[in-house]
Simulated assay, not measured.
Amino acid sequence: MCSADCWTDHRLIISKLNIHIQPQRRPQGQRVAKRLDFSKLECSLAAQELVSALDCKLADLQANSDDIEKDWKTLKTSVYSTALQVLGPATRNHQDWFDANDTEIQKLLKEKRQLLRAHQNDSTSTAKKAAFVSKRSIVQARLHSMLDAWLSSKVDEIQGFADRHDTKRFHDALMAVYGPPSCGSSPLLSADGTTLLKGKKEILERWVEHFDSVLNRPLSINNEAIARLPQVAINPDLDIPPSVEEVAKAFKQMSSGKAPGPDAIPAKVFKFGGPTLLKHRPTWLSHIQQGAKRAEEERTKTTEKKLELRKARAASVTDTAPTHMCPTCGRGFRSRIGLISHLRTQCSGSSTKK
C-alpha cells in the first residue's frame, strides 16, 4: 500500500549471512563397555554397597521365559549399570617417573623460573645470569637422578614379579610403565618374494592367499580309520543343570584377573554379587543352554559347508595340470609350498643318502 508521499511501505534490506552447514556425522559403531574400577572393592564398605545395590536393582526384575534373549540382555544390563554406578570407570593406569616426585619437581621448577625471570628483567647483570645457569644445572642433575631412581625401583619391582612367576602382576607392571601396545600392520613380501607390500588391503589379501594355499588342500578321509576309533559311552549326567552349590563354588573359583566376556560383566562382580545373582540362575542357565544349542547348529552347518567346499576344490584341482616341477625327480606339484616341502624333506634326504 502506498503512503501519503506515494512511496511504498516496503524497504529493500541487504544483508550478509554466514551459513554454516553442519557435516553429516558418520555412523558410530557399538561402543565398548567401560572398564570398572575394582580397586574400590578392597574396601569392605564399597563391596557391601555393591551387594546392596544389586539386591535393590534385581529385586523387581522379572524374567519372561518366552524370550530368553531379552531376559538375558535385561539382566546383564542391570548388573553392569549397577556396578558402573557404584564402582565407577577405571582411571588411567599409565605411570610416569614424575608422578611420584611431582611436589619436589614443581618446587625446583618454580625456583628456576624465578631466577630466569630475574635474569630476563636485568639481562646485563652477570650475577643473575650465573645464578640462573647454576640453578638450571642443579635442576637438570636432580631430575636425572629422580628418573634413574624411579627406573631402578621399577626394574626391581618387575624383576621380583618375574622371579616369583607372578605373570599377572608382571604384565600389569609392564603395561603401567610402557602403556598399551600400538596397533599396526607390518609389511609383507609378495608371493614371489620380489615386492614389499605396505598397504593394509594388500597385506590382508596376501595373508588370505597364504592361508588359502596352506589350509585348503585336498584331503583324503579314510572312513575305515574313523570307524576303528573307540566309541565313548554317552554320559547323561552332563545334561543335568548345575546346582546352586556348584554355581556358588564356580563363582568363588573364578580368576579375578580375567578379562570380561561379551556381556562386559567381570568376574569380581560375580564374586561379590554371587548370592544375589544366584536368584536369577534360571534366566542365564536357559540362555546358556540355548546359546550352546545354537552354537552347535552353527558349527555343524559350517563344517558341512567346509566339506562341500573342499570336495568342490579337490574336484577342480584334479582337473588342472601341476605348475611346479621338481628339478631332481621331475615330480609335479600344484602349489609352490608343496614343492618347497618336497625339496626340503624327500629330495634333499635322498640326495644326501646317495
Rank of each mutant, 00 (worst) to 15 (best):
I240V: 14
F98D: 11
K107G: 08
D156A: 13
A314L: 03
D212N: 09
G332C: 03
V177D: 09
D67W: 09
K252L: 10
L196A: 06
E298N: 13
L116R: 12
K249H: 06
Q30M: 09
S190T: 02
L45V: 14
L143A: 05
D37P: 00
A227I: 01
L278I: 02
G88V: 05
W207P: 04
F132D: 04
K353E: 11
L36R: 01
V86C: 02
R113Y: 06
P242H: 02
L196Q: 07
E296L: 15
N64F: 04
D263N: 04
L307N: 15
P27V: 01
L54F: 01
S185I: 15
K70F: 10
E246I: 10
N223H: 14
A267K: 05
S341R: 11
D99W: 06
L84I: 05
I14N: 07
A130P: 06
T195H: 08
A100D: 07
V214P: 03
P266D: 02
S125A: 00
S190K: 01
D163F: 07
A162S: 07
D212I: 03
S256M: 11
A267W: 00
V317R: 14
P282K: 10
R31A: 12
V86G: 01
T82Y: 03
K76D: 03
G29Q: 00
N18L: 11
K76E: 05
L189R: 09
S213F: 05
R35K: 11
T195M: 08
W150Q: 04
A90V: 15
Q48C: 10
K293G: 03
S137P: 06
W150S: 03
R310S: 08
L41A: 02
V155I: 13
R117V: 14
E209A: 15
M146I: 08
P180I: 05
T320M: 15
S213T: 05
A227R: 03
Q231F: 05
V244G: 08
K279G: 12
K201W: 13
E209P: 10
A315F: 07
R35H: 10
V269Q: 00
D263Q: 04
L17Q: 08
R113L: 06
G330Q: 02
E104N: 09
M146S: 07
A118Y: 07
M146D: 05
S152F: 14
S81A: 11
G88R: 08
I21L: 07
I138K: 13
T77K: 12
C347P: 00
